[in-house]
Design a protein around this nucleic acid. Structure first.
Length: 473
RNA sequence: GGCCCCAUCGUCUAGAGGCCUAGGACGGCGGGUUUUCAUCCCGUAAACCCCGGUUCGAAUCCGGGUGGGGUCACCA
C-alpha cells in the first residue's frame, strides 16, 4: 500500500478563492485521515499573469483558516523545490526524455500562424480546431538548423491517434475519450517555462502524489495527463473530480455581486474560520447522517471520497453560511468572542468591555462585522432621531431618569425591579416605556436587552444620554 | 457546435430494488417564549426532469429524450 499523498497547487495569479479552500480542505482531510501527507505546490509558470505578492497572501490565508501543509513553501520537504519556477531544469530534462522517445516534437510555428490556421479550420467547418502538425514533418537537420539559429520554439506532445483514453474517476466512475479529440498540446512554452499540463504531471509523479482531487472542470484535460503518464511509463495517481461551486440563483461561478468570493474577504467580514470550514465541508459531501456540526478533527475521521456527491455543480448558499456562522458565534466563550471582535470594534476599545457585551450580542449577529451596527452605542454616543420616540416619551424618560438616578445598588436585578415598579405605579405600557428608553440610550429600535445594556454603560453615561434627549424637548 | 460530465424540496443533501405515505438542515410560512431585535422551542408547505423498458416491485438498474454544466490556448 503506497502512502497517501495529496496536494493543492495554487497559482499566484490573484486572490485565493473560497472554492479553493474547499478543494484544499478535502485534500487535506483525505491525507490526514489516511495518515498521509498534504503538499502545497506553487504553480507559477504563467509569467504574464503573475501577481506580485500573491504567493505569500495565499499561504497566509490558508494558515489563517487553520490549515497546514506537510511539505511545500515555508516548510520545505524531501521533494522540493515546491515552486515550479524553481524547477525549470527538471521540466526541460523531462521534455528531452519525451523528445527522445518521439512522444514529443519541436514546433516553430508562430502565434500568428497558429491563429491563421485555426481561422482556416473554422472556415472549413471544423468544430474543434487542432494543431495541424506542420512541424512534425520537419527533418532532423531542419530542426537542428532552426535551433542553432535560435528561432523561438515550443515543445509539443505527439498525441497518438485513434486511441481510447480511459480512466476510472473515484467519484464519477469510468470516463473515456478518444485521443482524436485531443490536441498536440504544448509542453514547454517558448519562454522555456512548462505549461500546466506538463508541469502538473511531472511534479505529481516526482512528488509521489497518490490522489489528485480537484474541481471537475479538469475532467476534460485529464486524458491529456494520462497520455503523458503513459508516454513516460509512469504509474498513474487516482483521480477524484469534485463538483464545482456556483452562486445561488443566478447561474454559474461565485460572483462578487452576491458577496465575498475571496477566502480573505470572508475572514475580513467576520466569518469564523471554523464556521466557514464546516460550511464548506458540506458543499458536495455528506456524512450520511443528520449531523452537521464538525470540527476539523471530527471531519478527518468521517471524511471519505465515496461520500462526495456525484453531481455537477453545488450552490453556495450564503444564507446557510450566515446561519452556521451565527451558530459558531453563539458557541464562542465570552473571552474568545471579545478577542476575535477586537478588530471589528473601534480602535482603542477595551477588551473587557467586549467581554461584557458578548452575552448580549452573540445571538444577535451573524457576522462579527455586524458588531458596530448592533452595539455601536456602547462605543460612541448615538445619534437619536426624536421622531422615533413614542408620544409619552417625556414622561417615560423622566420616570426612568428619576429611578436610575436614585438607584442604591447598580445591578441588573435592582434596575429591573425598580423600573417595573415605577411602570406599574404610573400605569405605563411596558413595551412603550422600554422602547422610549431604548431609543434614548441606543438611538435604535433594535438593540440588545436595554437594561443589561444600561448596566454595562454605567449610571453616569446613562443619565447623560437621557438628559440630553430631555433637555431639548 | 464537437467532446465530456451531471439530474431528489428554492438550496445543501439522505437514499446503493421492497424499510419511501421520500428523511434531515438552511430558507419560507404559521405559532409559542420575550420590554425591541435576535436566540430558543413547536408546527407547516415544499422534490424523485420526461418517456420507454427490466422486475412481483424502481427515486434507485438499462435505453432514449429534454435540461443544466464543463471544456476545446505558448491560462491554470
Amino acid at each position: 500500500m503506497t502512502k497517501v499523498r495529496t496536494r493543492m497547487a495554487p497559482s499566484p495569479t490573484g486572490e485565493y478563492h473560497i472554492g479553493h479552500i474547499r478543494t484544499l480542505l478535502y485534500n487535506w482531510a483525505f491525507a490526514k485521515k489516511n495518515k498521509g501527507d498534504f503538499i502545497i505546490r506553487i504553480e507559477n509558470t504563467d509569467r504574464e499573469r503573475y501577481v506580485e505578492g500573491a504567493t505569500d497572501r495565499i499561504l497566509d490565508v490558508i494558515s489563517d483558516y487553520g490549515l497546514s501543509w506537510d511539505e511545500g513553501p515555508r516548510v520545505g520537504g524531501p521533494y522540493g523545490p515546491y515552486i515550479q519556477s524553481e524547477r525549470l531544469d527538471i521540466y526541460q530534462e523531462h521534455a528531452q526524455i519525451l523528445l527522445k522517445k518521439k512522444a514529443a516534437y519541436y514546433c516553430f510555428c508562430s502565434e500568428e500562424r497558429l491563429a491563421k490556421m485555426r481561422e482556416e479550420q473554422k472556415a472549413r467547418g471544423v468544430v474543434s480546431t487542432k494543431y495541424d502538425r506542420l512541424c512534425l514533418k520537419l527533418k532532423k537537420q531542419e530542426i537542428e538548423e532552426k535551433l542553432v539559429n535560435k528561432l523561438p520554439y515550443v515543445i509539443r506532445m505527439k498525441v497518438p491517434e485513434n486511441k481510447e483514453v480511459t480512466f476510472n474517476d473515484l467519484i464519477t466512475g469510468k470516463i473515456s475519450i478518444s485521443s482524436n479529440n485531443i490536441d498536440d498540446q504544448v509542453l514547454i512554452k517558448s519562454d522555456g517555462f512548462p505549461t500546466y499540463h506538463f508541469a502538473v504531471v511531472v511534479d505529481d509523479h516526482l512528488m509521489k502524489i497518490s490522489h489528485v482531487m480537484r474541481g471537475n472542470d479538469w475532467i476534460p484535460s485529464t486524458p491529456k495527463h494520462i497520455l503523458l503518464y503513459e508516454a513516460f511509463g509512469w504509474k498513474m495517481p487516482y483521480f477524484a473530480h469534485i463538483p464545482n461551486l456556483k452562486e445561488m440563483g443566478a447561474g454559474k461561478k461565485l460572483s462578487k455581486r452576491f458577496g465575498a468570493v475571496s477566502a480573505r474577504e470572508f475572514l475580513d467580514e467576520g466569518y469564523l474560520a471554523e464556521a466557514l470550514l464546516n460550511f464548506l465541508m458540506f458543499l458536495g459531501w455528506n456524512p450520511g447522517t443528520d449531523r452537521e456540526f464538525y470540527s476539523l478533527e471530527e471531519f478527518i475521521r468521517v471524511f471519505s471520497i465515496e461520500k462526495i456527491h456525484k453531481t455537477d455543480l453545488v450552490a453556495f448558499d450564503r444564507d446557510k453560511l450566515l446561519w452556521m456562522n451565527n451558530q459558531y458565534i453563539q458557541k464562542l466563550t465570552d473571552e474568545d468572542f471579545a478577542q476575535r471582535s477586537l478588530k471589528f470594534a473601534p480602535v482603542g476599545i477595551d477588551k473587557k468591555l467586549l467581554i461584557k457585551l458578548s452575552p448580549l450580542v452573540k445571538s444577535r449577529i451573524k457576522k462579527l462585522s455586524e458588531l458596530r451596527q448592533l452595539a455601536g452605542f456602547f462605543f460612541e454616543k448615538p445619534r437619536v432621531d426624536k421622531k422615533m420616540l413614542g408620544k409619552n416619551w417625556v414622561e417615560h424618560l423622566q420616570a426612568a431618569h428619576n429611578i436610575i438616578e436614585n438607584l442604591d445598588s447598580w445591578d441588573l436585578e435592582n434596575l429591573n425591579d425598580n423600573l417595573m415598579k415605577k411602570i406599574e405605579k404610573k400605569g405605563f405600557k411596558t413595551g412603550d416605556f422600554f422602547m422610549d428608553l431604548r431609543i434614548a440610550i441606543a438611538g435604535s429600535k433594535f438593540t440588545p436587552p436595554i437594561n443589561d445594556s444600561i448596566v454595562i454603560l454605567g449610571k453616569e453615561e446613562t443619565l447623560k444620554r437621557i438628559n440630553k434627549i430631555l433637555s431639548d424637548k
